[in-house]
Design a binder for these strands. Structure first.
Lengths: 211, 211
DNA sequence: TATGTTTACGAACGGTCGGTCTTATTGTAC
DNA sequence: GTACAATAAGACCGACCGTTCGTAAACATA
């Protein structure tokens, strides 16, 4: 970074590469990610990428970190504006659905895809993904505990009860899309599925409405 | 097939290849499947595979068909031995969990993995996967409708209600495994998760017990 | 036994992969 | 201006990819 605060050239291309790599990885998979394709899509040389990351694995880890930063910025941070308790839990649900609806990532949920891809492939990547998922589950569990402590959520489903349910909803949102896509367009199908999920989530036997 | 009913040489290797390819594809992904690895694992030549399938894509489609046949044989057919209604619905749940517990496929659920892999990749493979998932959902919906008609299951959650819930359980079983694996062993973690899912499924607000 | 098909092999193809060089340009600091 | 590090490009490497080819057994049929 220069003294006046503007991004220097290297930092600009670095974030551009991470943005592009995140999109490509969400579609082709984190392992199917091709350095050549990333470089070509940005109009830079492939060897230039190795000036920023010394290996493909290093770039993959950076992509995961980038995805988490985006997740925090677009889902967690806006939701934390809601008051504590059940309303904050619902805010997380809403910001997440809004993020999917915005289709920032054409391949759906990066983390869900990555987890299924590396589920049976031990190594640095899977370890890192496991940390991300653990943190996310802990975050949801904490919110749920908050809601229980405030008397806004019936206890007894812990540990991981509400969080688990919430997690599965988003996961399946991606899961179901191709099926419905045979009848309507792919984009509209995903939206319809999300509406269905929202309706399912409002079932008071699963998650009570905020009062 | 010869006149006395024994498998001829070609058929034997064909099924052996499909068995091996299914295992490898469940771990490395249907796209990450390598013909060289399949051939090496079986001690046959890579070029010999092209005597059975004219392209990698043809083999991938055959693997999907093979996975469906295995699914039908090990999950659907045993479950159909149960009497119609809620008990048959529960039988499907049990045979499915048993199949996962047996760890026939080291990578977890082949279809769940494949769906996430090809979610954003239109083409012949995704179209075929969509058909498989549609058939599976239709099957579950039919079983649920049966149970409703027999008065063993409360109506109102259709379409896709119970089926959707059941589907999400199995999907998430694979999803969560790496996380818990940090505390206990990977294999024991998956089993523990399955037990948790079973307990969750017995919640009468989600799916009532068979009477 | 003779014939044609199926099945399998080894060698090789063009292409892409991740990765490593050398070289040139850019921007900063002195 | 000079020195220096960061950044980028281009040529190139060995490895692996899916695929094709020619060839040769194995097999069914006659």
């Amino acid at each position: 970074m220069t003294q006046d605060g503007r991004l220097i050239r290297g930092e600009r291309t670095r974030t551009a590469v991470l943005d592009q790599a995140l999109v490509l990885a969400t579609v082709a998979g984190l392992d199917g990610l091709s350095l050549s394709q990333v470089a070509d899509a940005l109009g830079v040389s492939k060897s230039g990428l190795f000036a920023h990351w010394r290996s493909k694995e290093a770039l993959q880890l950076a992509v995961i970190e980038h995805a988490r930063a985006q997740w925090t910025e677009r889902i967690i941070r806006p939701a934390l504006a809601a008051p504590r308790g059940i309303r904050r839990l619902w805010a997380v649900h809403d910001t997440r659905l809004a993020f999917y609806e915005a289709e920032v990532l054409p391949g759906g949920c990066f983390f869900a895809n990555a987890h299924f891809e590396y589920n049976a492939r031990p190594g640095v990547i899977r370890d890192r993904l496991a940390v991300e998922l653990t943190d996310w589950m802990t975050f949801l569990t904490t919110l749920a505990a908050d809601a229980v402590a405030l008397g806004e959520l019936r206890p007894g489903a812990e540990p991981g009860g509400v969080a688990y349910e919430t997690e599965s909803l988003g996961v399946c949102a991606v899961m179901q899309a191709p099926v419905l896509g045979r009848d309507v367009t792919f984009r509209r199908a995903r939206r319809a599925q999300l509406e269905h999920l929202r309706a399912l989530a409002t079932d008071p036997t699963i998650l009570p409405e905020p009062t």
